[in-house]
Simulated assay, not measured.
Amino acid sequence: MKRFFGSEEQPPAIEIVDYDFVKKLPCEPQKLLIDVRKPKELKETGQIPTSINIPLALLCQELIASKSIFECKYGRKKPQPDTEIIFYCRSGKRSLQAAETAVALGFRKVKSYEGSWLDWAKKEGLPE
């Protein structure tokens, strides 16, 4: 795997964020919110506004894809090493795995939404 930080540097810590942080993301288009659930899960529940779906199993290959392929597939600029990326899933377990993957690939501003969809749905009054 390609890393963007030197071998002597420690990888960045994964910050844990909450509902209030994610709720503000529509006003911050430079940040990228990624839902790592399977497409079937999204069809059953919906997804957080402004998020894109990249299933956990495909995350590594999508984050290293070319700029043009990423932008064509997702309609968003491909994240750079200093892009703020926030991951979420159903409960927070896969989002943490996704965040670890992103850090291993050299992304430095990686966050995981604790509680993820279950927390969002509860606070938004949506079915879980």
Results as ranks from 00 to 15, higher is better:
82 D>C: 02
23 K>A: 02
119 D>E: 11
60 C>M: 11
6 G>K: 10
99 A>T: 08
45 T>V: 12
128 E>A: 11
14 I>G: 07
49 P>N: 03
3 R>A: 10
106 G>E: 05
64 I>N: 06
56 L>Q: 04
100 E>I: 12
64 I>Q: 07
55 P>H: 05
73 K>M: 01
93 K>G: 12
61 Q>V: 15
91 S>A: 13
50 T>G: 00
38 K>C: 10
127 P>F: 15
123 K>Q: 14
107 F>G: 00
8 E>L: 15
76 R>L: 02
100 E>H: 10
103 V>M: 03
80 Q>E: 05
47 Q>E: 08
6 G>M: 13
104 A>E: 10
37 R>T: 09
128 E>D: 08
74 Y>A: 00
114 E>M: 13
68 S>F: 12
83 T>G: 03
35 D>Q: 03
7 S>T: 14
116 S>F: 11
110 V>L: 11
22 V>T: 05
67 K>R: 02
109 K>F: 15
80 Q>D: 02
16 I>A: 13
54 I>P: 09
114 E>L: 14
70 F>V: 04
86 I>W: 05
73 K>R: 05
31 K>C: 01
19 Y>C: 09
5 F>K: 07
97 Q>T: 14
8 E>Q: 09
98 A>G: 10
65 A>S: 14
111 K>D: 02
39 P>M: 03
10 Q>T: 13
74 Y>T: 01
33 L>S: 03
19 Y>R: 00
34 I>E: 04
104 A>P: 09
106 G>V: 13
106 G>F: 11
19 Y>S: 07
46 G>L: 08
24 K>V: 01
